[in-house]
């Protein structure tokens, strides 16, 4: 009896069920806190025509950039892209559809998706190209636009520690979009650096409660740094 034990034994098992044409939500900001091994498994499986929801799209040869190599992504919702040459090329060739989304709106779309809220009003983007064609309303004399929630067939998440019930803690700023992505996947898969026994994590310090999590796997991570900056 597995009960609440969310552990899976392999990456193959972790991404079981992913198919071409699905929507995948991914945590991470730049290369910080990205589910790097789960992304690599998606590449290995060769599924295509994915819609990806992520703040960025990795770099050439790492992170979500890996999925560009075999043209596995057909559409992406992101706030900032183009840190990679391959992405630029596919964008200019119209091989990938980019839905640029303000960063806070993107986070809130995922949060709302996981929280059962189909849409929300925000002032962000009003009067800009982002607001065009969207429903507008005035509250207290201020203009707002209606933004719809996003849900995924899969959410792929990078945590720090989890117990086998799927309660997750994140480390430092590797938290970023991960907690929101975790709530909004039909199947949420979390990879972590360490899986501990239930009871070892302080309940009040859990960032993502296990109820959102379907599968967890422990692994090691390269954690590539995008802009190493030090003081002299």
């Amino acid at each position: 009896m597995a009960g609440f034990d969310k552990r899976v034994a392999s990456y193959e098992e972790a991404m079981e069920g992913i198919e071409s044409g699905m929507t995948v939500l991914a945590g991470g900001f730049g290369l910080c806190g990205i589910p790097e091994n789960l992304i690599a498994e998606i590449k290995r499986r060769g599924v295509k025509d994915l819609t990806v929801v992520s703040n960025n799209c990795g770099v050439d040869g790492f992170g979500l950039g890996l999925l560009l190599e075999d043209r596995q992504i057909s559409k992406i919702f992101a706030s900032y892209v183009g840190e990679n040459a391959l992405f630029e090329q596919q964008m200019l060739n119209n091989e990938i559809e980019v839905v640029l989304t303000p960063q806070g709106t993107l986070a809130e779309k995922m949060r709302a998706g996981g929280a059962g809220i189909p849409a929300f009003y925000t002032a962000t983007g009003y009067g800009t190209p982002i607001g065009e064609g969207k429903e507008e309303r005035v509250f207290d004399g201020r203009h707002y636009i209606l933004e719809e929630a996003i849900k995924g067939d899969f959410a792929i998440v990078k945590g720090w520690k989890a117990d086998r019930y799927g309660n997750v803690m994140y480390r430092h700023t590797a938290q970023n979009f991960n907690p929101m992505a975790a709530t909004a996947g039909k199947i949420t898969v979390v990879e972590v650096e360490e899986i501990v026994e239930p009871g070892e994590l302080e309940p009040s310090q859990i960032h993502t409660p296990g109820i959102y999590v379907d599968r967890i796997i422990q692994s090691t991570f390269e954690k590539r740094i995008e802009k190493r900056t030090v003081r002299s």
């Binding site: 183009g82 925000t122 962000t124 982002i130």
Partner: peptide
């Protein structure tokens, strides 16, 4: 080439 607005639209709003 349009790289995106990042958080700027939220910040100004």
């Amino acid at each position: 080439l349009i790289k995106g607005m990042g958080g700027a639209m939220d910040l100004v709003a």
